[in-house]
Design a protein around this nucleic acid. Structure first.
Length: 928
RNA sequence: GCCGGAGUGGCGGAAUUGGCAGACGCGCGGGAUUCAAAAUCCCGUUAUGGCAACAUAGUGUGGGUUCGAGUCCCACCUCCGGCACCA
């Protein structure tokens, strides 16, 4: 059919947009910048994998493209950039396996994915394109790392501050160092000048230089610490939790992963726990994502309680959220790794305890947590003294207590804790009720609130009240104090891999860890022939990062003292680059700063109606609900504290597009069958060759299920506009929906109808006619209102349905459309199917792009119906309908209703008890 | 186990937020056009009964509130996503 030649049209307009830089958005201060309302709309930038885009990527990209095209027509300055999150393990692993340099595969993958993205005709400002692997980009990633390194979290200010402030505070004696190395205010300063600081504290200048450095380093936002990590000897690197499968193996390569303590770089995200939690309330995010972040941060309030060990000077502190159940504590459990285990274990129990500790150390995290059915543990032979009643309770060790949370020790209250109950039953330990549940519920395992029993003078108190009382009671006696705990851990920030940002640091024997001067950045990743990590089968083999092999790169001089020094060999994790890319888009070419403050303020600064500031709309998949979004918020807050950005939050509004899944077919042996072997018949799917009936299900797209839909093919067959329209028409943007290629021709037909309506084809003339049809005019006003409203609410499916109805009307009842009406319709279509819209716009006699045409306006008077048809119900059942003028009075309506024959017959012999009239909708008569 | 989200025709979904359930699209059936087909256009399409007008039932299940419930409340079932011995 000659007519709608999508291939030619799409190529032509993509070329036009590119040649004319149609979507380049100048920054404030640049020529052609117009002062208009701003809108920053951002897609989560893709990881350029070798597989390219799947149909899920363009779903979000299409949605944002519609939003920005609409906003441009509404007179906004629109920032809409795209880039690539290109460092990371998959690219590197692929490179290792194929013997190609990761830079090469990365560049190739980026080229391919960009080709794909451009096929869709998205209106990105490509002049702002970035890749996290560009030295010009990661120069600033390194720079931000240095800000983290050179800062500490000041609890008084509740904000990050330059580390120099801490140093001068210590040097002036304003602050002193406590026993544990913690910094505290010198409370006695000025009062007892000759007797030093508070008990147990030391003045800074009294410490050795090494010790001083240690104190400083341990307060930085980026610090090194020995922590338990997921160590994969085969990949030769530590892995983040999400890079480890449920089976305790590496996501990439499926190799064993071991729990092991290694000295690593950490970022002090836990200092921000409360702010990350509290500031969620100022964000326009899906509630479910906020809840996930809250759970991840996992703030809980309770108390630290000190238990003495009988016959030992040791004190064991436990953390509990239920201090009100202290009287029910019948034993205590330490994590096997707890430092006091060795101290308190009795000689009789020593062998058994050591054996248990050894066993649990060998277990992976998975093995420890998977064995949920049966609890294990060993008695240490020691007894603790319950501070509330001086009862002696046995101290056990068990691996259901984790060293990483709270104090690594618990008081066990089997009556009111499910896990403790299980353990107590397993080992026959006493169970004492201390909470009376409301109603007749059994107290055993009751974890809710109730009334205290068996709790001495506290009996009869409600749980909440009891908690307050007992905490105060403990504090008075120095036996404990109120405490807050978080599930959130500090962020393990180093990887022993090649393909990541190098740390801009050197290790100097004399000066310790020394940052590189900022003006020496970027510290470029050295070119290497062999970037393969040291692979091993030995879980205890020492890590040896690939960068260590570049002796010429590693050996350098200390920027502080000039002595020989070594570079840091670790690289940053993949999350680093994505933590701040939205800021670089603002000012992608700036070589003086990561972003110009004025430009940042224009695009992201807080506004009266949006105190959080930040990106106006951020669209991406829910798989980044926690980590990416939490890490980025953390970095942003650090930059905010240090005065580099003006908004407290990076993403004001977040929207998660739903996952696009697709049909998967499986034969009787459970083998997946690819689409080209599936024969779809009326009663189901059959195998083309064997004729066997296949089982159909809807699954996440994956290679192994053979159900991946490739956008290139769909675009080749139907064009980008059809693709875009189909994905938007499938259903609500945030819902998970199955891709069904069979449905694609529906929207393709619609576009063809639009084309023929305005441009005509060889064998059918257009429906353009000079006389304006009033019905069409009214419908068009209604449509304008509807489409605008739906786009703003991101309800594209109903916007498209309304356009289809409009076109059906023009084809059917009206039979014609005036050129002026056609123009307005084209403008409404433009955000959704931009190529066709541009082409039709041109055919209607315009020379310029429609990208900056004004959005059509509607007149509510044209929409208001003159007449309304009301359904008439009798006792809730529709018995007829009446048409009355829109402003009819109730009496007039009732008159019409009673005159309606069907209603009258339904009313025959009955009495109207009540009448409900909903204007413009319904009349309900209640009769007896 | 805990925390979210969702269950509406053969399928994807709509329903102005308590007011005519099934918009729009797919598929299917019928018709027009054609030598024929593709494409296109028109009509029909929740189920049951009826030639029809129409009647009855109907939004996962059971109960409730209301003149009126897909929408609100209570209990339950199923599916999807996340977390998971967090003391």
């Amino acid at each position: 059919m000659a007519g709608y030649d999508f291939a030619a049209i799409e190529k032509k307009w993509q070329q036009y947009w590119s040649d004319n830089e149609t979507f380049r958005q100048p920054n404030p201060g640049e020529p052609n910048f117009a002062d208009r309302p701003r809108m920053y709309v951002l897609d989560m930038f893709p990881y350029p994998s070798g597989a390219g885009l799947h149909v899920g990527h363009p779903e979000g990209y299409t949605a944002t493209d519609i939003m920005v095209r609409y906003r441009r027509m509404k007179g906004f300055n629109v920032l809409h950039p795209m880039g690539y999150d290109a460092f990371g393990l998959p690219a590197e692993q692929y490179a290792v396996e194929h013997g190609v340099h990761p830079r090469e595969t990365t560049e190739r993958n980026i080229a391919n994915i960009e080709r794909q993205i451009k096929m869709f005709g998205f209106s990105y400002d490509w002049s702002r394109r970035i890749a996290t692997t560009d030295p010009d980009y990661y120069r600033w990633t390194q720079w931000i790392f240095l800000q983290l390194f050179n800062s500490w979290y000041d609890p008084q200010a509740n904000a990050a501050r330059p580390i120099s402030e801490l140093i001068s505070r210590l040097e002036s004696g304003q602050s002193v160092v406590g026993i544990g190395g913690e910094v505290q205010f010198n409370t006695s300063d000025g009062l007892t000048p000759y007797f030093g600081g508070p008990i147990g504290t030391i003045k800074f200048h009294e410490l050795s230089p090494e010790h001083r450095r240690e104190i400083i380093d341990s307060h930085r936002l980026a610090y090194m610490a020995e922590v338990p990590v997921n160590w994969c000897p085969k990949l030769g690197t530590v892995l983040a939790n999400e890079e480890v499968t449920n089976e305790g193996r590496s996501e990439r390569g499926n190799w064993p992963v071991y729990r092991r303590a290694l000295k690593q770089w950490m970022l002090r995200i836990t200092s921000y726990a409360d702010r990350l939690l509290d500031d969620l309330q100022m964000l326009d995010w899906p509630e479910s994502i906020k809840i996930m972040q809250r759970n991840w941060i996992g703030r809980s309030e309770g108390a630290d309680v000190d238990f003495c060990i009988a016959g030992s000077p040791e004190i064991i502190t436990v953390y509990t959220t239920r201090p009100d159940t202290l009287f029910g504590a019948t034993y205590m459990v330490l994590a096997p790794e707890h430092p006091l285990v060795e101290e308190i274990t009795s000689d009789a129990q020593r062998d058994a305890v050591r054996e248990y500790v050894r066993q649990s150390a060998g277990k992976s995290e998975l093995e420890r947590t998977a064995e949920t059915k049966e609890k294990t543990g060993v008695f240490t032979g020691a007894y603790a003294v319950n501070p509330v009643n001086d009862e002696r309770i046995p101290v056990w060790i068990a691996d259901y207590v984790m060293m990483g949370y709270g104090t690594g020790a618990i008081m066990a209250v089997p009556a009111h804790d499910t896990r403790d109950l299980e353990f107590a039953e397993q080992f026959d330990l006493p169970i004492i009720q201390v909470v009376q549940p409301p109603g007749g519920t059994d107290f055993r395992g009751y974890v809710g609130d109730g009334v205290a029993v068996n709790s001495g003078q506290f009996d009869g108190l409600e749980t909440a009240e009891f908690k307050k009382k007992i905490t105060a009671w403990l504090e008075q006696r120095g036996l404990g104090k109120a405490a807050v705990n978080y599930k959130l851990r500090d962020w393990l920030f180093s990887r022993q891999r090649y393909w990541g940002e190098p740390f801009p640091l050197v290790h100097c024997e004399k000066c310790g860890v020394v940052p590189l001067p900022e003006d020496s950045l970027p510290l470029e990743l050295p070119e290497m022939e062999d970037f393969t990590p040291a692979s091993s089968d030995d879980p205890s083999a020492p890590p040896s990062p690939p960068l260590g092999k570049m002796a010429g790169w590693v050996e350098t001089t200390c920027p502080a003292c000039g002595a020989p020094a070594q570079r840091e060999l670790n690289t940053m994790p993949q999350w680093a680059g994505s933590c701040w890319y939205y800021l670089r888009f603002l000012d992608a070419k700036n070589d003086k700063a990561f972003v110009d403050p004025e430009i940042e303020k224009y695009w992201m600064g807080p506004r009266e109606d949006a105190p959080a500031g930040g990106v106006d709309l951020y669209v991406g998949g829910a798989e980044h609900a926690v980590l990416h979004l939490l890490y980025a918020r953390f970095w942003h807050k650090v930059l905010f504290d240090l005065g580099y950005v003006s908004s407290p939050e990076p993403f004001r509004k977040l929207f998660n597009q739903g996952m696009i899944r697709s049909f998967a077919y499986r034969d009787s042996r459970g083998m997946n069958v690819a689409y080209d072997e599936v024969d779809l018949r009326e009663d189901g799917a059959y195998h083309r060759q064997t004729g066997e009936k296949l089982a159909e299900s809807v699954e996440k797209m994956s290679k192994s299920l053979k159900n991946v839909v490739n956008p290139d093919e769909v675009i080749g067959q139907y064009g980008a506009d059809t693709f875009r329209l189909y994905e938007m028409f499938m259903g609500p943007l945030d819902a998970s929906k199955p891709w069904n290629t069979r449905d694609v021709p529906g929207v393709y037909r619609f576009l063809n109808r639009v084309w023929r309506m305005i441009a005509g084809t060889e064998d059918a003339s257009s429906l353009l006619g000079e006389t304006q049809c009033d019905t069409v005019e009214r419908a068009l006003h209604k449509l304008t209102k509807k489409v605008g409203k739906d786009i703003e609410a991101m309800k594209f499916n109903t916007a498209i349905a309304a356009m289809m109805e409009f076109v059906n009307l023009v084809y059917g009842k009206a039979g014609r459309i005036s050129p002026d009406q056609a123009e307005r319709f084209v403008l409404l279509l433009a955000p959704l199917a931009p190529h066709m819209a541009e082409e039709l716009w041109q055919k209607l006699g315009h020379e310029e792009t429609l990208a900056y045409e004004s959005w059509p306006v509607y007149d509510d008077n044209m929409i208001a119906a003159e007449e309304a048809t009301l359904a008439v119900q009798v006792n809730g059942k529709v018995r007829g309908r009446v048409t009355v003028s829109a402003d009819a009075s109730e009496d007039a309506i009732m008159e019409a209703v009673l005159a309606e024959a069907k209603v009258a017959s339904a009313l025959a012999g009955k009495q109207i008890v009540k009448q409900i009239i909903v204007p413009g909708r319904i009349v309900n008569l209640v009769v007896k």
